[in-house]
């Protein structure tokens, strides 16, 4: 890993990405340490979700280097399925599989990617449902759950692969206000786990303040500012960061 020149679990090295002519990532430099909890904030359209989606190559990058867990994600011969199996992802719109029960949603990847026996996968899934506080919903279909419950199942589904890294792409943005807390509580508990690296794109600044080791602020496809969380909130350096914070904290 050292020979890759990356001393963290995730390294962006001058990463550029275009959507057609639109230059959405303009030379991103970022290193995330093993076990670190990082929150990425910024106005919409700043490229923060795109940045997150590059980590497991849901979005390919066009220029620069991206190293995740010692592997070059940007190289086409990378064993992307293997890498992805170690990275859990939680989406804004949950993306649960509607034709499968909660239990089947959670056991799908362990069974078909890790070839885990069904009984073992189900036992593990039930344990995870306990952890996200909905053990009684194992045999329900996603359409029978509230948004907050669906997102918690999605978190359990991602955890079922024992990921080294968890990516959260605005996990509470599609939720009704009264359900945001139940999802954030689960994420808070998750953040207690030492070994797991978490990268979270969110507008929930209260959550960020509590959980993040480091804040990353993006605008217009670049990282404008990054700092340890306390420092970031108490004394932001850049004008754009201050503007954004005043808007998001006093609305």
């Amino acid at each position: 890993m050292a020979e890759q020149g990356c001393d963290g679990i995730i390294c962006f090295r001058d990463v550029h990405k275009w959507f057609g002519r639109l230059h959405v990532l303009r030379g991103v430099e970022l290193t995330i340490d093993y076990g670190e909890k990082v929150v990425i904030a910024g106005p919409s359209g700043s490229g923060k979700s795109t940045l997150l989606r590059c980590i497991n190559r849901l979005e390919p990058i066009q220029q620069g280097e991206l190293i995740v867990d010692g592997q070059r994600v940007d190289e086409s011969h990378a064993d992307i399925n293997r890498l992805r199996s170690k990275i859990g992802m939680v989406f804004q719109h949950f993306n649960l599989f509607p034709h499968l029960t909660v239990l089947e949603n959670i056991t799908l990847a362990p069974r078909y990617v890790l070839k885990m026996p069904r009984a073992e996968a189900e036992e593990k899934a039930r344990g995870l449902l306990d952890r996200v506080h909905i053990p009684e919903k194992a045999s329900a279909y996603p359409a029978q759950l509230s948004g907050g419950q669906q997102q918690r199942v999605a978190i359990a589904r991602a955890l079922a692969m024992d990921p080294k890294i968890m990516l959260f792409d605005e996990p509470t943005s599609a939720l009704d206000p009264e359900m945001i807390k139940e999802v954030l509580d689960v994420m808070r508990a998750l953040a207690q786990a030492r070994g797991m690296t978490m990268v979270v794109v969110t507008h929930e600044m209260g959550f960020a303040r509590e959980v993040a080791d480091r804040m990353v602020f993006m605008a217009d496809g670049v990282i404008v500012e990054q700092a340890p969380t306390d420092e970031f909130f108490s004394s932001p350096q850049e004008e754009r960061t201050k503007q954004f914070m005043s808007r998001i904290l006093h609305h």
């Binding site: 849901l58 992805r84 992802m89 990847a109 991602a158």
Partner: peptide, 8 residues
């Protein structure tokens, strides 16, 4: 995306 992100 969800399926591919799990490694399927």
């Amino acid at each position: 995306e969800a399926a591919r992100a799990m490694g399927l």
